[in-house]
């Protein structure tokens, strides 16, 4: 599965990318904020986007909203420590597959393994 990671923390990007790659998936791009995420989504057309929420500039929710405009079928998993339920609900309303904590690599990989490539 071709995965795009959007996170403003390079620490987190590396960790997530490591986990994704160890599970045999391909990280096709890593973006540092929402805007870059949208651009990379446009050019890379990944099978899955792993999206942070709190980022400099455009945040993850906005980014996903934009990505969904580009591609209504886009598949997104949020990985965030934001605990506010309203935001989580908002995210899920955007059609995200899941809302995961930053260190829930296991669940992330399960999700990747059980989602078919497009």
């Amino acid at each position: 599965m071709r995965v795009l990671i959007v996170d403003d923390s390079s620490f987190m990007r590396k960790r997530i990318a490591g986990a994704v790659e160890r599970a045999g998936h391909q990280v096709v791009g890593q973006a540092r904020d929402g805007q870059e995420g949208i651009e990379m989504y446009r050019s890379l057309k990944p099978d899955m986007v792993i999206m942070d929420v709190t980022m400099r500039g455009m945040d993850g929710i906005e980014a996903v909203r934009n990505i969904r405009q580009v591609d209504g079928e886009a598949r997104v998993v949020f990985m965030s420590l934001v605990s506010d339920e309203r935001i989580q609900q908002e995210a899920m309303k955007l059609g995200a597959l899941a809302w995961l904590g930053k260190d829930e690599h296991g669940r992330l990989i399960d999700l990747l393994n059980n989602t078919g490539a497009r």
Partner: peptide, 16 residues
């Protein structure tokens, strides 16, 4: 917002 985000980011990585 920037200050908030900096701390949020550090918190995330430190938790990890």
């Amino acid at each position: 917002n920037d200050c908030f985000r900096n701390m949020h980011s550090i918190k995330g990585a430190a938790n990890y």
